[in-house]
């Protein structure tokens, strides 16, 4: 089986995220970059599928130079190769532009399965997997908490608000996973050292055959119009007990619709 795992470098989960004042895009220099947490589950799932059924696993990312570190991390976990789409012209791409770029570089490479984390911790839209599936004309199995194979059929438990649905599709397909699916492994030292020698293909917009007019900020259908810093925390309400403290607290909770 040939598996692609699409990963994204995002600002460190615990860092304060900032937008740039010039073009309202994410300020990637303001914080350390890490692999999007849910993408680690996607990589782990690919590795487990590979261990059970045999697979060649390619890590795909789109992002600036240093996003290469995220490919390297996935390779050190055990993936086989990487594709890094890096080009200044991609800066500011929204989900539609990103899905176009990813679908274009994934197309024609014979992947049986394309796996995503179900959302990124920076944009949190959860739409790119579905958009890629739609653009490539593939079945989409999203929000999977469990994946099973039978021949060329793949069946998932798809998490819903009330429980889960069982969804089946034929390969090739697009899969997105939630954190319940597995426990991502730590890269081993041998894996870290072996990762240096694994092939990573670097593509520009031109190399990938992308239409420049369909990527980047100017081609994006969505844009940030305005933003403001989070207001500082307001002082809390102090309830002074003058014999009726309990009533005052109850009134406050009722007022806030907690009770």
């Amino acid at each position: 089986m040939k598996i692609a795992v699409c990963v994204k470098q995002v600002p460190d989960t615990w860092a304060e995220k900032k937008l740039r004042s010039d073009d309202s895009t994410l300020d990637r220099e303001a914080a350390d970059g890490v692999m999007n947490e849910l993408d680690e589950y996607a990589v782990e799932e690919a590795l487990q599928i590979g261990e059970a059924h045999g697979a060649e696993i390619t890590i795909v990312t789109m992002g600036p130079d240093r996003a290469g570190e995220t490919i390297r991390k996935a390779l050190s976990m055990g993936a086989d190769a990487g594709i890094h789409l890096v080009d200044d012209g991609l800066h500011g791409s929204d989900a539609l532009a990103t899905s176009y770029a990813l679908a274009t570089i994934l197309e024609g490479r014979g992947f049986d399965l394309i796996i995503f984390g179900s959302e990124s911790t920076d944009a949190r839209m959860s739409v790119v997997p579905a958009m890629v599936a739609e653009r490539m004309g593939l079945a989409q199995l999203t929000f999977a908490q469990k994946v099973e194979f039978e021949g060329t059929q793949v069946t998932i438990d798809r998490v819903t608000d009330s429980g889960y649905d069982t969804v089946t599709a034929s390969l090739p397909a697009v899969l997105s996973v939630v954190e319940k699916i597995n426990e991502p492994r730590y890269p081993s030292f041998k894996g870290i050292m072996a990762a240096k020698k694994k092939p990573v293909e670097t593509l520009s917009v031109a190399d990938a055959g992308l239409d420049m007019a369909r990527v980047g900020a100017s081609a994006s259908w969505s844009a940030v119009v305005d933003f403001a810093a989070r207001p500082p925390k307001a002082a809390g309400t102090v309830v002074t007990d003058e014999g009726n403290g309990g009533v005052k607290i109850a009134d406050f909770l009722v007022g806030q619709k907690f009770i």
């Binding site: 081993s188 030292f189 050292m193």
Partner: peptide
Amino acid sequence: ELGLLGMHLHGYGCAGTSAVA
């Protein structure tokens, strides 16, 4: 599992990292 034990030794299942690592 990480490769921490005898990490700077070579062969016999050891990771074979640098001394700095």
